[in-house]
Simulated scan of single mutants.
Amino acid sequence: MTTEARDGTETADPTPEGTTAGGFWTGRSGLVVAGILAAIGVYLVAGIITMDVPDGAKSPGPTFFPILIATAVFVLAGLLAIQTLRNPDPMPAGPAEHRFYTDWKSLGLVFFSFLAFALLLVPVGWLLSAALLFWGVARALGSKRPLFDIGLALVFSSCIQLAFGAGLGLNLPGGILEGIYG
């Protein structure tokens, strides 16, 4: 294929039809994230396979949720890979511009919410520490409704407490609420 230059002469097109100037990998850096997700999935599967399951474990058993999570990780990795292969990021027309920045406020809020969760889990209990974690992440992601977020976080952590307690027979730390619901 040829292209017409400004002076009217025809020149050979440097990129064959159907390809991009940078080659196959140009605009497909999202495949790195898909690969990392797949590696995390492999790690989870290795952990599931090597997990010591007691003989008297009831169905669905302690491997049920890890299997669900590993499956979700593999599905997400596959979908991300397909999306990245089908729709690569466009090449900038001019000089490369940096489009990345770090939202330190949100990152710090998520970090300190997780740190508070880890430190408060045993003394305060799952219900309140998980609600604090969920609330902090919601705020970090930009939610502007603190009372709604607190209520939703308490409901969500309560549902997880019920799922682990009633559904799997596992006890999450009760903390200061041990005698009330534990």
Rank of each mutant, 00 (worst) to 15 (best):
M1D: 04
A5N: 05
R6W: 02
G8N: 01
G8D: 04
G8T: 01
G8Q: 00
E10L: 03
T11F: 03
A12V: 01
A12E: 02
D13Y: 01
T15M: 09
T19W: 10
T19C: 09
T19Y: 13
T20Q: 00
A21K: 01
G22F: 07
G23S: 08
W25G: 05
T26Y: 02
S29A: 07
S29V: 06
S29D: 06
G30Y: 04
L31A: 04
L31V: 02
V32N: 04
V32R: 04
L37F: 05
A38C: 02
A39Q: 00
G41C: 00
Y43F: 08
Y43P: 01
L44N: 02
L44E: 05
V45Q: 07
V45P: 08
A46S: 01
I48R: 09
I49C: 09
D52Y: 12
D52P: 13
D52Q: 15
V53L: 09
P54N: 00
D55G: 12
D55I: 10
K58H: 09
K58D: 11
S59K: 11
P60I: 06
G61V: 08
P62V: 07
T63M: 10
F64R: 10
F65P: 14
I69M: 11
I69E: 09
F74K: 02
F74S: 01
L79Y: 08
A81M: 14
I82G: 13
T84F: 08
L85E: 06
L85A: 09
L85S: 08
N87A: 14
P88G: 08
P88M: 08
P88Y: 02
D89M: 09
P90N: 01
P92S: 02
P92H: 03
A93W: 07
A93H: 07
G94W: 02
P95G: 07
P95Q: 05
E97V: 09
H98Y: 06
T102H: 10
T102Y: 10
D103I: 04
D103S: 01
G108A: 06
G108V: 00
G108C: 05
L109S: 05
L109D: 03
F111C: 07
S113F: 00
L119S: 13
L119T: 14
L119N: 11
L120S: 10
L120Q: 10
V122A: 03
G125Y: 07
W126T: 05
W126H: 06
L128W: 12
L128F: 15
S129V: 13
A131N: 15
L132I: 15
F134V: 14
F134T: 14
W135G: 13
G136W: 10
A138E: 11
A140N: 03
G142N: 05
S143M: 10
S143T: 12
S143C: 10
K144C: 06
L147I: 15
I150R: 13
I150G: 14
I150L: 15
A153N: 13
L154C: 11
L154Q: 12
V155M: 15
F156H: 11
S157W: 13
S158C: 15
Q161V: 12
Q161R: 15
L162S: 14
L162P: 12
A163V: 15
A163R: 12
A163Q: 12
F164G: 10
A166D: 08
L168Y: 09
L170Y: 02
L172D: 10
L172Q: 12
P173Q: 12
P173M: 11
G174C: 11
L177E: 00
E178I: 00
G179N: 01
G179P: 06
I180M: 01
I180R: 00
I180V: 05
I180W: 05
